[in-house]
Design a protein around this nucleic acid. Structure first.
Lengths: 188, 188
DNA sequence: TCCTGAATTTGATGTTTGTCAATTGCTTTG
DNA sequence: CAAAGCAATTGACAAACATCAAATTCAGGA
């Protein structure tokens, strides 16, 4: 399983053998059953994870409503950005929507790798850049005025989400309520 | 002027003298008069810049309307993420709202520094992480349902923007139109 | 298979926001 | 100082969306 992560990192920057050895030792594979939590609000996010199989949902509570901020699936990097980088408890929850397997690296061990292996800084930087780029795409969609346009963006770019994600979560992700999303879908 | 940038980088990661020397040679200071463009859509963004003084606005065109995506001011890092990282022309415009002075580093020279100086990877990574964190805060605000709440977030966290930015830009930044923003403000 | 609860759709209605138009206020420049 | 141009406000109305309620469809477990 861990080979997939190693291979992915190697596409970003060729890693020296010692770095690969360290990764094999430090990266842990973990399974999360559907509906189990990778992170709960109030906790400090101590791990960056790479999703090997499955799908997760990130959300926070606004009053009593769950506001979905992100869906992540195979190949994605996942953590709570705020909590992981600031080392403080955050308000973000991450839950498995499907049975999910991830490769995890602890914050402290990541810092160790950054200090020890220059190449790992490059990998960390490039992964962060990719994450940033994906986030900008999301924001671009969120700033659209009409619900219809936001929904069509998902249809066009992430159609598999429609098969894998309950509409109630997709609705808050797109900043509308469930009934509105249902009506938009019904228009066709 | 460039000392401010060097000092800032040093707070992230102590830089060896050769890196500092390289930066002094490669980083250029440039002034942009109010209303002049740091980047126009269709161009490839070749520079990452640090704002020393002033304020900029990033926006793109949706049909004929300018949609503001970002305000950046003293201390911020500025580039078009998509274009700078992908090396392709983007749809983003960056314009100076006030007279603005920036320290600029060219993409190619940045890559050179990454290869030559491990410490610079750390700096690049940390700056990217900070940018990412700021973007998440923006998205958090954008996902709020009511215009009133989004506006109050600005009042609370970035009140200086209200003094420095015309309302018409703030409106599209918050995803509402000018009249709606004006009415929200008038409620008090 | 049937039952139960969850997911989704549909309906009626009120609130918020967008749009268009006009007005007022401000600023800058000749 | 006056005129011109831009910024901001206000009003009237329409469109989009939220809310509350109920009905229908779907899926998993007994």
């Amino acid at each position: 399983m861990i080979d997939a992560v190693i291979a992915y990192f190697n596409t970003i920057c060729a890693m020296p053998d010692e770095l690969v050895d360290d990764l094999r030792e430090l990266v842990r594979i973990k399974d999360f059953k559907k509906d189990s939590f990778l992170l709960k609000s109030g906790q400090v996010s101590n791990y960056a994870s790479w999703i090997l199989t499955g799908l997760t949902r990130s959300y926070y509570l606004r009053d009593t409503e769950e506001v979905t901020t992100k869906f992540l699936w195979e190949g994605a990097t996942i953590t709570s950005v705020y909590s992981f980088y600031s080392r403080k408890p955050g308000n973000e929850n991450i839950v498995a929507i499907e049975d999910t397997t991830v490769a995890m690296l602890h914050y402290n061990e990541m810092q160790t790798l950054y200090k020890k292996h220059p190449a790992f800084n490059t990998i960390g930087r490039v992964i962060t850049e990719k994450y940033l780029y994906m986030l900008e795409i999301e924001v671009y969609n969120l700033r659209k005025q009409k619900g219809e346009d936001k929904y069509q963006f998902i249809v066009k770019h992430f159609p598999h989400l429609l098969q894998r994600v309950p509409l109630k979560y997709l609705a808050t992700y797109l900043g509308m309520n469930l009934e509105t999303l249902s009506r938009i879908r019904g228009k066709r």
